[in-house]
Simulated scan of single mutants.
Amino acid sequence: MGEEQRREPAQPMTRRERRLLAERGVPRILTVCTGNICRSPLAETVLRARLRDLGVEVSSAGTHAVVGHEMTRQAQELATGRGADAGDAAAHRARFLVDPLLLEADLVLAMSREHRDEAVLLTPHRVHHVLTIRQFARLAAELDDDTIRSAADAAGPLAAQRLSHAVTTVSARSLGAGSDDDDVIDPYHRSDAVYEESAAQLDPGLAQVERVVRLALA
């Protein structure tokens, strides 16, 4: 699905969707992949550890989740090597992506363009809050600190709204449908070397997410 299609006017929000949006208070980040046992929980657990002092809630889900399964061994090791709590990584269990999770999130980080597009199909009016993590890294790197702080300040004092405004400022720079460089390689059932490559592709995004969140909330 191209960017032009995703930015077409969306259907009006339902009453339930408006209620869920109104109830958002704690800033929330959602990471999304396919099975929810490799890429998205790796990103989830690392970001949760790095943002714990800011009170940000980080969760993950899969478009075709292996429901109830734990993270793969390699993903757990790579997550803890990047600062995730070992117990947190071991406790993860996969779950399906459903629209309430998307409605509650101020930032949705997809692991690929396919995951991004599936998330947008579920909640098209939230398109400006859904990016691939590599896309987020690229776009956020183009913004200076003052621009991000100013966007957050314009939202007022509430943490969730501050993060939401900062995210839309990042996503506003997105043009076109993206490229292969916006996808994180899927390492499932592949070698340890591929797992390392996949995690390395996540690293710039993890760093930029932490940067943007801290500028918006700290």
Rank of each mutant, 00 (worst) to 15 (best):
H69A: 14
L20R: 15
L20Q: 13
L51H: 14
G68M: 07
E57N: 11
L78W: 03
A218V: 09
H125Y: 12
D186T: 10
D203M: 03
Q76F: 00
R113S: 06
D181N: 07
A155L: 12
Q161C: 13
G68T: 11
E8W: 04
V108A: 02
A105E: 06
I37H: 07
E142K: 08
C38G: 10
R116I: 00
P9S: 04
R73K: 09
L42A: 06
Q5M: 09
G205D: 01
A10R: 02
G178N: 09
D53W: 06
E70G: 15
E196H: 10
H92M: 10
S174F: 11
A75L: 07
V67T: 14
E114C: 00
A94P: 06
R190L: 08
L202T: 00
V213E: 05
H125E: 13
G176D: 06
V66T: 12
L206F: 10
T34C: 14
R190S: 14
S191Q: 08
S198H: 09
A105W: 05
E118A: 15
D117P: 02
V127D: 02
T147N: 03
L102N: 08
A140M: 09
A177R: 15
A207M: 04
L122P: 11
F136I: 03
A86M: 05
V130M: 14
V184R: 01
M111C: 13
R190K: 12
L21F: 08
A22T: 08
T169M: 01
R162I: 04
L54A: 10
H64Q: 13
E23D: 15
S174E: 10
A90K: 15
P12D: 03
V167L: 00
R173D: 07
R134F: 01
A43M: 11
A207D: 12
V32A: 13
E77D: 13
D88R: 05
D183H: 00
L158M: 11
Q135P: 01
I29C: 11
T45M: 00
S198A: 15
G176T: 05
R7F: 08
D88G: 05
H125T: 12
R126T: 09
T45I: 02
G176E: 06
R82Y: 02
S150D: 14
S191N: 10
A193H: 10
D192R: 13
R149Y: 08
E196P: 04
R19E: 06
A155K: 11
A94T: 10
R39K: 12
